[in-house]
């Protein structure tokens, strides 16, 4: 998942750089259709896909991390309870 996020992060940066360049070029010569051509539409679609993929991967990663932290918090709470009652830790 981390590799997946890395790849789509860099893809998002690349597509953003592409469209920032095209936006600047379009200011100088809008007649060339840098932002309205069919090729631009395809690249915008791919940009959106990479951003969505990155967002989904980030959300999944965050949820996994949150679950992990929640599990650790529960474990920590159980240990605290046990040590306060002076009981031996339960056998796993």
């Amino acid at each position: 998942m981390r590799t997946f996020r890395n790849v789509f992060s860099h893809l998002s940066i690349i597509f953003s750089g592409l469209f920032i360049t095209l936006t600047i070029l379009n200011q100088y010569n809008p007649g060339m259709g840098f932002l309205t051509s069919t090729v631009s539409m395809v690249f915008i679609f791919l940009f959106c896909l990479s951003v969505v993929a990155l967002a989904v991967a980030t959300i999944m990663d965050n949820r996994k991390h949150a679950k992990h932290m929640h599990h650790r918090a529960e474990e920590a709470a159980r240990w605290k309870k046990i040590s306060s009652n002076n009981q031996r830790p339960p056998q796993k």
């Binding site: 690349i14 750089g17 592409l18």
Partner: peptide
Amino acid sequence: LLDLLGIGAALGIYALFLFVIPS
């Protein structure tokens, strides 16, 4: 640097489809 090279490659591919490859 790799990201900047990627942006350059993307611009090249864009130009290839827009100006070179006929519709």
